[in-house]
Design a protein around this nucleic acid. Structure first.
Lengths: 167, 167
DNA sequence: CGGAATCCGCCACGATACTG
DNA sequence: CAGTATCGTGGCGGATTCCG
């Protein structure tokens, strides 16, 4: 099994709970801050997917594996373990043969599901605007670069014209 | 400048927009899916912080740098460029000397800010429950492992007792 | 001050093989 | 079927340097 592979057990360190309006300024300075760790965990590549998929009905390991498709068994296992450890997903092993394991959201996980769906929905709703913004940005960048190149070439031409032949 | 460093310019590929209730099953299969890319982008380590910090008032580069503290100038620059490209943050250069650059949320970025705050708030509100869940999980795991070790030791003792002395 | 460019360590992730 | 174990690698992210 080796090491625990996670440093969360170092210290409690609540890192200052909401005293003013926005304590955002603080949940980054200390890397042992719980909020940062949790945020990094649930906002990671696969956790979002798993939580989003685990709505209402429970799913088997292989079902999740097929649904996510890009994921490796290793990553799915790790992700599910983390979510289980955080109390967001429950793991039920049916002692049959072949074995069958079901995963489902805990009540806590269900509350997070709502928020995550909101994030996903926002992304779906605004992907058009973002795509447009990217296109515009890239166009501007390309134009700028081309202008810079032309300008340099022009300077070069003038220099060649004015300066005496080196040697 | 080198390559664009991002493969998003490959193809439009909307990957099927909400036809049924949940099209979650689809925004993962094709890795050229826009939603996945956008999600990975805004959910990354620093973007969440920057967007959360950029509420109402605009901030200078160095202000952000000091606030986030753990971040390197390289990462802050990259993050801000990405957000600018996605149309979430606007970049204003004041032609003074020394130069001064202000960043602020665009209207689009402001809408995302709301959702992100919701996520952060959820995390702040439930960090206690999560910490408790982790502690319980770790305790169970430790107990299981200890049980396994004891069991193995017991089997070993029996084996030593029953089996004839080898050689 | 606000970047761009370069170098590089390291570990997160994927592919593969093996177990119960 | 549902994992664990092991190894190899890409690329993320930090440190440093130079520029306008």
């Amino acid at each position: 099994m080796g090491t625990v592979e996670d440093g969360t057990s170092k210290s409690p360190g609540y890192c200052g709970d909401t005293d003013g309006d926005y304590d955002v300024l603080q949940w980054d300075t200390r890397e042992d801050c719980e909020v940062r760790q949790i945020l990094d965990r649930i906002a990671d590549k696969w956790s979002l997917l798993v939580i989003a998929l685990l709505d209402r009905r429970s799913l088997r390991f292989t079902e999740l594996r097929r649904m996510i498709d890009g994921i490796s068994q290793r990553m799915l296992t790790r992700t599910l373990r983390h979510l289980e450890r955080d109390g967001l997903v429950s793991r039920t092993v049916h002692p049959t043969v072949p074995p069958r394991v079901d995963y489902e959201l805990t009540p806590l996980g269900a509350t997070l599901h709502t928020t995550i769906r909101a994030l996903v929905t926002w992304t779906e709703d605004h992907q058009g605007q973002i795509a447009a913004a990217r296109a515009a940005f890239d166009r501007r960048a390309a134009a700028e670069q081309e202008a810079a190149v032309r300008e340099a070439a022009e300077r070069d031409a003038i220099a060649r014209d004015v300066l005496p032949v080196r040697r």
